[in-house]
């Protein structure tokens, strides 16, 4: 045969698709909302980690933020995780702490992954918040600019979900006002109802994304949620 053919073999490796779930655990989340989160998080492990095909290409990290940000679950293959730690609510809502921490862990996880022979799709950051940032606007915006800096090759795509006192304008800014990236629940919606649907929808989205990884073109799909609406993009004057 004279024409070179593309060759596929059994050792074909797939790039992994990392997801960083940034969960607001400020004081306002205490009570029912944080219980709802703790009840739903094991679903991540069961649905993503329980399917060998999904687990092979998806990596998930869980980061909580309040006054500070912490990796409660480092970036993991969920099939190898025994349990997802329980989250507790306390403190204020520092978006700056969240963005700075995510920037740091994406960089270090990427370098660790690359040295282990992994290839990455652009990571996805999923910000879930029930309030407005309590740190100064200048500080969290600077941290966000650093995270989304076009010159930083590992800059993630961001999806933002808000309920309770979350500000649609802030969520829109977090997602760089991209269409279908920021979602907010109706005013006064009960977080204990919104959270299960949101986390369930996210799991489905991540599972769907895994199929696109096998197809060779990973897609970040936002979940369809009846209790939340997409924040529309502003029209230009």
């Amino acid at each position: 045969m004279t024409i070179a053919e593309p060759t596929v073999d059994a050792g074909e490796r797939y790039s992994v698709f990392p997801f960083y779930i940034c969960m607001d655990v400020s004081e306002s989340m205490s009570g029912d909302p944080i219980s709802a989160v703790n009840k739903q998080l094991p679903l991540l492990r069961a649905s993503i980690g329980g399917d060998p095909a999904v687990a092979e290409v998806i990596r998930v990290a869980i980061i909580t933020f309040s006054d500070t940000a912490t990796s409660v679950l480092p970036l993991s293959d969920l099939s190898m995780v025994d349990a997802i730690p329980e989250l507790a609510a306390r403190g204020r809502t520092s978006y700056a702490a969240a963005f700075e921490h995510v920037h740091k862990v994406i960089e270090s996880d990427y370098l660790a992954g690359r040295s282990a022979g992994e290839r990455w799709y652009r990571p996805a950051v999923i910000l879930i918040s029930d309030g407005r940032p309590t740190d100064e606007a200048g500080r969290w915006q600077a941290a966000l600019s650093r995270l989304t800096d076009p010159s930083w090759k590992r800059r993630p795509n961001i999806l933002a979900f808000g309920f309770g006192d979350a500000d649609p304008a802030v969520l829109s800014a977090v997602t760089s006002a991209k269409a279908n990236r920021a979602f907010v629940a109706a005013q006064g919606a009960d977080p204990a109802t919104v959270i299960p649907e949101l986390l369930g929808g996210l799991v489905q989205s991540i599972v769907s994304s895994s199929a696109s990884v096998y197809g060779g073109q990973a897609q970040l799909e936002a979940p369809e949620l009846s209790s939340m609406r997409a924040i529309t993009v502003d029209e230009l004057d």
Binding site: I3, E5, P6, T7, V8, D9, A10, G11, E12, Y14, A53, Y214, G215, G216, Q217
Partner: peptide, 23 residues
């Protein structure tokens, strides 16, 4: 049989032809 995913469809769509090496 090969205990692997052999992602041939993306190659077929892109290149039209594909060669599979089966160990």
């Amino acid at each position: 049989a090969g205990a692997a995913n052999f992602p041939i469809q993306s190659f077929q769509r892109r290149e039209g032809r594909v060669r599979v090496e089966f160990p």
